[in-house]
Design a protein around this nucleic acid. Sequence first.
DNA 1: ATTTTCGTTGACCGGTTGGTCAGGTTGTGG
DNA 2: CCACAACCTGACCAACCGGTCAACGAAAAT
Lengths: 215, 215
Amino acid sequence: MPPDAQISRIKPGRRTDIRRENERLILDAAERVFAEAGFGGATMQLIADMAGLPKANLHYYFATKEDLYRRVVSQIFEIWLDAAASFDNAPDPATGIGAYIDAKMDISRRHPHGSKVWASEVMHGAPVIQDYLETTLRDWTNGRIAVIQTWIDEGRMAPIDPRHLLYMLWASTQHYADFGHQIETLNNGQPLSDRQWAEAKASLKAMILRGIGAI
Amino acid sequence: MPPDAQISRIKPGRRTDIRRENERLILDAAERVFAEAGFGGATMQLIADMAGLPKANLHYYFATKEDLYRRVVSQIFEIWLDAAASFDNAPDPATGIGAYIDAKMDISRRHPHGSKVWASEVMHGAPVIQDYLETTLRDWTNGRIAVIQTWIDEGRMAPIDPRHLLYMLWASTQHYADFGHQIETLNNGQPLSDRQWAEAKASLKAMILRGIGAI
DNA sequence: ATTTTCGTTGACCGGTTGGTCAGGTTGTGG
DNA sequence: CCACAACCTGACCAACCGGTCAACGAAAAT
């Protein structure tokens, strides 16, 4: 035991800090570059430049381009799954689905790059996250379908197909991230303001919740 | 004038046929490869192999990779604009928007690759079709917004924001093409059957038309 | 029959990419 | 103070990419 154990707490490893900080720097840069150029169009050199590190340093922390990409995609998947909490423990569909729309719209606004990387990955046939789709996502989906079906059986909402409701929720919320450039262009080249984001959320909730007979 | 003008009608140019056929072959292969690999990940060699032609032959018909890509994207844009006809001359929102959903879902099913190429292009900041967004698409959008606003003013539907309704229509219909792989995975690895496509269209129309108070 | 145009293609090239590596620096534990 | 481990990086390389080109065959025009 060291004479002063506090040291290892006060300075929990400067080496570890460096590693964590650089990995964060690289992952943030990679997320942006992968989103803007796609996996094939992204180059390690560009990611390195954006992270402010030499290219060789990237390969010190991430063995291959594919490893780095896999980490970026997994990171987004985690954020997505966290939004599931909004869905649970809701007393009624309006509250649960409304909160889910809010959460997904917040993710679209705060992690637009991540959403695009996910979309690209799926569009290209999910070569690196196919197992996630077949396990975690499938389980999550079936769980929510069961919840929605319960609401329908209890007469709390219209008898729509829960599966297609989920697809519509995913599509309409992620659209604000994935097609953000198109939306911005149609908004006179300006990004949506705070007020416009709030209006988007309100419009979506109004249409969807009324559409499923939850309000 | 040739002695027998019929020849030029009976054989309207074998050369022209060859050109048209090869361009079609290349464009179809390119659409698929660009959709599956993205612009950066696609290679002229792969497109050539899929078209069954030598790579040098591609460059005889299309000067550069970017020219070929531009042609593919434009092609999709045309198909999209044609679906606009479903929207027009409709007596009421349920008919017009319902027909538009049907048309867009049919495109998602028959041109999934094209939809993905478009999505990729927009996600990457629309580097080659920005002018289309700022002219044709913006005009089209404003025109439909005016139509929807008229319906609202006439009390034929709920007073929702027409812009966000359009975004929801685009997002929810294109989702079945762009995220087709994810949907297929969640459908036990099977593509949607005729019946399932019909159910998807019916579910979408039910939710959206009820959501905007059109039924 | 001959010239010309169009279509075809293998071989080639400069530039770029992902990845490697040897040799260096910095911080840490003993 | 020393030895070891973690971190850093310029220089380099084999592989691959988009694109070029000269040579050739086939059809069409003259």
